[in-house]
Simulated scan of single mutants.
Amino acid sequence: MSAPGTRRIVLWRHGQTAWNLERRFQGTTDVDLTETGRAQAKRSARLLASLTPHSIISSDLRRTRDTAAELAAVTGLEVTYDEALRETYAGAWQGLTHDEIMARFGEQYAAWKRGEAVRRGGGELETEVADRAAPLVERAAEKLPSGGVLVVVSHGGTIRTTIGRLLGLPSPSWEALGGLSNCAWSVLGEGVRGWRLMEHNAGSLPEPVLGDDV
């Protein structure tokens, strides 16, 4: 439980897509939710509404927009969309399955999993994703009233790098934060020494983690 007056950030991953099921790397490709993904968003939105959020910000891709819309429908809040919350751009990896990536970019894939700074498929570094996403989240959180709740609707990789940055963790250790299941969320609470991780991958266990950040 957080102390009274503590501001909270809820980082909520989008619902299931067909590419998640196919283990196909999405990145910034604009992929729709499946019917299961829409049902996940509806269910999770009802749970998150009980936190009485004050504001919602979202990636502008369809899978996050449609997820955020479910929470907006039950809370009456407007959603602010920003491309800074998009998933990591992964260049030539996008659209490939993980097996195809390992076959074509094996050493690059292995280096990424070792925690090395890698431009996957010629795309963004994870630190560059944090550079664009974390400041946006911090600015939105600063506008919250005492005890306010900000919901950030984004993507698995972007959420992980944002959490790592807000917690002040060194980038090679961000991999220690496990991936989020579809429509699961993590909660950061404001402490005297900065943000603290209060919950991680909440709301959907034991659902498998399917997506780019596996």
Rank of each mutant, 00 (worst) to 15 (best):
G157R: 04
L61F: 09
L188V: 12
E116V: 09
G122N: 03
P135M: 12
G164Y: 03
G164H: 09
P206Q: 11
L169F: 04
D131T: 04
H54K: 12
G189H: 12
L167C: 02
S186H: 09
Q108N: 10
E175T: 11
P145W: 05
T162R: 01
G189K: 13
W174T: 08
A18E: 15
W19H: 08
A184H: 02
W93E: 11
I9C: 07
R8I: 00
E142H: 07
P135C: 09
S204M: 14
P170Q: 11
T80R: 13
Q40D: 07
G95V: 05
A110C: 13
H54C: 07
E124A: 02
G76S: 00
S55K: 11
L61C: 03
T28C: 07
H155S: 05
V118P: 02
R62H: 14
S171N: 10
A49I: 01
S2E: 14
G178V: 11
R120F: 01
A84Y: 00
R160V: 10
E124G: 00
S154R: 00
R24W: 02
M198C: 10
R132T: 02
E128M: 03
G27N: 07
G168W: 06
W195P: 05
G147N: 00
A134M: 11
I9A: 09
G115Y: 02
R86Q: 09
E83V: 11
R24F: 08
D30Y: 00
V31L: 03
V153K: 08
R120A: 11
L167G: 05
A184M: 10
E199P: 11
W112S: 15
G121K: 06
G115Q: 01
A45T: 08
L205V: 15
R62V: 14
Y89R: 06
L77N: 06
A72D: 01
W185N: 08
R24Q: 00
S44E: 13
K42Q: 15
S44R: 04
C183S: 11
A133F: 03
M198L: 15
R120N: 13
V187P: 11
G164P: 09
Q94Y: 01
G203F: 01
T67N: 05
R43Y: 02
I9D: 06
G123E: 01
S181K: 10
T6C: 12
V214S: 15
A184S: 15
R119C: 12
I56Q: 08
G123T: 14
I56R: 12
D60W: 02
W185L: 06
L11T: 13
L167F: 06
G156P: 07
G95R: 00
L11E: 04
S2N: 14
L47V: 14
L197G: 12
G37H: 02
H54S: 04
A176H: 14
G211V: 03
A140R: 10
L169R: 13
G122V: 01
S58T: 05
G211F: 06
S2R: 04
V152R: 10
L61A: 07
L77M: 08
R62M: 06
L169K: 11
N201W: 10
S50R: 15
L180H: 07
V152F: 03
A184E: 04
